[in-house]
């Protein structure tokens, strides 16, 4: 194809420059020339000005997309990296949402300050994740999927019928049964109320960016490599003295903590929580985002979340 001594890349540079045509061509050409960091900054800038340009309803869609992106990132740790088919993921989201709703509404009534509530919720979700990871020591593949699926089902059933449990008094109806918990308070960060769509959007955007950065580093770390080894072949990884059980635990814990955090924001955005928010169809939505984007890739699952979250509303 190319002559000896002439670099193919150099040879085709004219062709590449002419790849774009039309009135957007100069802008796209300029974008291509930017270093990676600047490209990211441009993208981030576009996402950051988005709520300033669009009406309220559109910002709500943006919030949905960002929540879904956070969840997809969390699920990606468990499914995409560690390769554990966790169909109970939505329960952690529900747990975080219900936990926040219970401690930040008239339900108990307890009105914990947000800066205390959120760390506790994240820690509790992580603990629940650690608990769910215990069966993964023995169960593999589809059996793990089934078991976690039923964990999610039990969560919804429990939430729906909590007040009727035999050992709980009628007055202590923590979850409000099928009616859910209305009137959840907004986040209050040291006096700054996250009470509008725009503020929620920026809160989520900041958290998502931090999350992406953190996960990117985690994926490049020793742990990330070990997770991938686990995913490709658990048995082989174990023979190479990879601490398989510890890694499974860690994957579940990270995924659950992210889902719990997303849940607590969701409860505040929706100003209430209802059992059906955390049923099977939403789990499928998260999975769809992860799979559509390409499980295992951070940018992929974020794009998947954008597609899945945006299209039904647009």
């Amino acid at each position: 194809m190319s002559q000896i001594g002439v670099d193919q890349w150099v040879e085709q540079s004219d062709e590449r420059r002419d790849r774009y045509s039309g009135w957007t061509a100069p802008a796209r050409r300029a974008f291509d020339k930017l270093p990676t960091g600047w490209k990211l900054a441009v993208l981030l800038g576009a996402v950051a000005v988005y709520p300033l340009l669009v009406p309220q309803g559109e910002i709500r869609i943006g919030i949905t997309v960002l929540l879904l992106a956070m969840l997809a990132l969390g699920l990606n740790v468990v499914v995409g990296w560690a390769g554990l088919l966790d169909l109970g993921f939505v329960a952690f989201y529900g747990f975080g949402a219900y936990f926040y709703a219970i401690v930040a509404s008239d339900q108990l009534p307890a009105h914990w300050p947000t800066w205390i509530a959120i760390p506790i919720i994240v820690a509790a979700s992580a603990l629940l994740g650690a608990l769910l990871s215990l069966p993964s020591r023995r169960l593999v593949g589809d059996y793990l999927a089934i078991m976690t699926l039923f964990f999610a089902q039990i969560f919804v059933e429990l939430v729906r019928n909590f007040g009727r449990l035999p050992f709980v008094s009628e007055d202590l109806d923590l979850t409000g049964g099928p009616n859910g918990i209305p009137g959840v308070e907004a986040w209050d960060l040291f006096g700054f109320q996250i009470n509008s769509f725009k503020r929620h959007y920026y809160l989520l955007l900041i958290l998502t960016v931090v999350l992406i950065a953190g996960l990117h580093n985690l994926n490049a770390s020793r742990t990330g490599r070990a997770w991938r080894a686990l995913r490709e072949d658990t048995l082989a990884a174990e023979h190479m003295t990879t601490p398989v059980n510890k890694l499974k635990l860690l994957a579940f814990v990270v995924g659950a903590a992210i889902a719990g955090l997303a849940g607590s924001i969701f409860a505040a955005v929706q100003v209430g929580v209802f059992p059906n928010n955390f049923a099977l169809p939403f789990l499928i939505t998260i999975y769809a985002a992860v799979i559509l984007g390409g499980s295992g890739s951070i940018s992929g699952v974020v794009l998947g979340a954008v597609a899945i979250g945006y299209i039904p509303d647009a």
């Binding site: 023995r138 059996y143 078991m147 039923f150 019928n161 449990l165 035999p166």
Partner: peptide, 24 residues
Amino acid sequence: YLSSTFQNLIVFGLLIVVLLVRPR
């Protein structure tokens, strides 16, 4: 003997217990 509200919980719980004892 117990309550119809919890039949699903019991059935799913049974599944988890069986799987924990006999993973297959």
